[in-house]
Design a protein around this nucleic acid. Sequence first.
DNA 1: TAACTACACTTGCATATTGCAAGCGCCTTG
DNA 2: CAAGGCGCTTGCAATATGCAAGTGTAGTTA
Lengths: 145, 145
Amino acid sequence: MANAGKPDWSGCPTRYAAGIVGDKWCFLLLRDVLLHDKRTYRAFLASPEGISTNILANRLSKLEALGMFTREPDPRKASSVCYFPTQKAKDFLPALLSMMVWATRYDEVTEAPPSFAESFKEDPDGTIAWYEAKMDRVDQALRSS
Amino acid sequence: MANAGKPDWSGCPTRYAAGIVGDKWCFLLLRDVLLHDKRTYRAFLASPEGISTNILANRLSKLEALGMFTREPDPRKASSVCYFPTQKAKDFLPALLSMMVWATRYDEVTEAPPSFAESFKEDPDGTIAWYEAKMDRVDQALRSS
DNA sequence: TAACTACACTTGCATATTGCAAGCGCCTTG
DNA sequence: CAAGGCGCTTGCAATATGCAAGTGTAGTTA
């Protein structure tokens, strides 16, 4: 695996973050959960980057082990499964948005509208709160269905 | 290689960031340059995570190709080499600090003092400026020696 | 000036991780 | 009770990594 799950990658904050987010698939799964409201295996699998199913299974259990996701039965269909972000994952949102601002600036063919970076710069807390509220709505709706 | 260097990993800001920082070694090299004032091959090699020399060479050229680092002769010894951060790399600092705040919160054995997260939260721009100024001092001193 | 050293990589090779395609067991649905 | 969807698991070839050793080029020393 992409090592760095736990042992001795603690201590230094950057190294700790690198141990989780320094893997493109974990990084993208975090995006899917925090920004794109994806909660199921199928949904993750359908992301345009094309993760393969063995890697997806591996990363989902890694993220669960790291306390980023919880694995729960799907309220809509008991045979199915949902992955929900924990508080630890939700708290990663500001860092994710910061990286998106940076990427928006340097990716020549970015699909992000300029308004995104502007609104984050003008009111970071408000932007974060907006995404958090959206996430909470999604999760509450899903859980109580 | 960890793929995702350029082709079709543009567009989505998260994917663009994942293509660069979604690799633990690139991530840690960025830390070494932005935070720990490292500028030489030897210095990178000496980081406690123990990158191997072929991977280091590979990532340095990747980061150079991505416009994050510039490769220049060492002013102190012409036969030696320095890697300097570009503006693109320097602009990644806010995102890096955000991730460190997150890591500091969730890594049970973090070595970062609580004051770090606090000062960033109280005055993010000031904290960023402080690290930028430090970097600029380092680079200016090195370049004019 | 010939040997020595430091530096920035390369190379070879064993091992680990990935990507792809197929398969499996468990519901649910018709 | 046959068919299909879902969440994985398995096998295998291709790729990337880690480790140790080697290479080429400048300076430095004797």
